[in-house]
């Protein structure tokens, strides 16, 4: 019971600290903008730990963060192997194939008005579908190993990428196209110098949406069958063994991988589309 009281005390301390940091004048500094969410996160973790211990919640319902951290450290090897299997082999290869295919298909679709009119509604329709449902079919076709996961990811990221590329290539105005015409630019040159750069903000939007989709696809596809390695496999078997600390450790890995993946793509976006207003501060 004391621990539970301590938890609310910790909450009060954290919140007061944040209240002082969020005052006018301090809140605008970069340091405050980083510290405040960090304090909030730490407070939540402390409360979680104290309440779970204080109320003696069984580990099979909710393990305290310390147990998760221990599982994370002790099973480092297993987590790494799962990471390689699911993220590097399954998600990343599917991401590259799917985004590449969507991008190239988008360039071709944007060339013809007829194709664009036909493909955009179909692509938008497909992008909103529960495509993870294709996982059992693709597992049946490509086997249990990472190839089937890469296939699921490819299908999932293809349509968002296609739609965004086509939307981006429609971005240059008639004025800009006329200017390229005045310069006597060949179609190839105007694609390279005008259309593609103008499309990049949209392309990166598609790439960013696809990072999350890729991880979701790779993990969920493993629920339909996988070799005895992989994050989705580990999650479903550990849940079966009620080893919830291990499940949470895998979720931490998934969260870190997702954030890092997204961060890398955003970094690339900043480098490539440095000229875009949203990137200039």
């Amino acid at each position: 019971m004391i621990l539970v009281v301590c938890a609310f005390l910790a909450w009060a301390v954290g919140w007061t600290l944040n209240l002082t940091l969020a005052r006018d004048g301090v809140a605008e500094t970069r340091a405050a903008q980083i510290t405040v969410p960090v304090i909030f996160g730490v407070t939540v973790l402390i409360m979680w730990e104290l309440i779970v211990r204080g109320l003696q919640v069984p580990g099979v319902i909710l393990p305290p963060p310390s147990a998760v951290a221990r599982a994370f450290v002790q099973n480092g090897n297993v987590l790494w192997v799962d990471f390689v299997q699911t993220i590097l082999k399954g998600a990343l290869s599917g991401y590259l194939i799917g985004c590449g295919a969507g991008f190239i298909a988008g360039i071709f679709a944007a060339k013809s008005d007829f194709l664009r009119r036909g493909l955009l509604p179909v692509g938008n329709f497909a992008a909103a579908l529960p495509i993870v449902g294709t996982a059992p079919i693709l597992v049946m076709w490509f086997g249990f190993d990472w190839q089937s996961k890469a296939a699921v990811v490819t299908v999932m990221v293809f349509f968002p990428m296609l739609v965004n590329t086509v939307a981006g290539l429609a971005e240059p105005t008639a004025m800009q196209r006329d200017l390229m015409h005045t310069y006597a630019a060949s179609p190839r040159q105007s694609l390279e110098k005008l259309d593609l750069p103008a499309a990049m903000p949209f392309v990166f939007n598609g790439l960013k949406i696809s990072t999350t989709l890729a991880l979701i696809g790779a993990i969920v596809a493993e629920f339909f069958g996988s070799p005895t390695v992989g994050m989705g496999f580990r999650i479903s078997t550990s849940v079966g063994q009620l080893a919830l600390d291990m499940v949470w450790a895998e979720i931490v890995v998934a969260a870190l991988a997702g954030t890092a993946f997204f961060g890398l793509v955003s970094l690339a976006e900043r480098i490539v589309t440095f000229w875009h207003p949203s990137q200039r501060s």
């Binding site: 919140w15 944040n18 209240l19 940091l21 969020a22 809140a27 405050a32 903008q33 405040v36 969410p37 304090i39 909030f40 996160g41 990072t211 999350t212 991880l215 979701i216 993990i219 969920v220 629920f223 994050m231 989705g232 999650i235 479903s236 849940v239 919830l244 499940v247 949470w248 895998e250 979720i251 998934a254 969260a255 997702g258 954030t259 993946f261 997204f262």
Partner: peptide
Amino acid sequence: VMDMSVMPWAIVSQTIPIIALAPM
């Protein structure tokens, strides 16, 4: 203060496959 504490986490949560929590 809620904006500064919660919003970054809400944005980060968009980049992680929270669906992995489903079986648990």
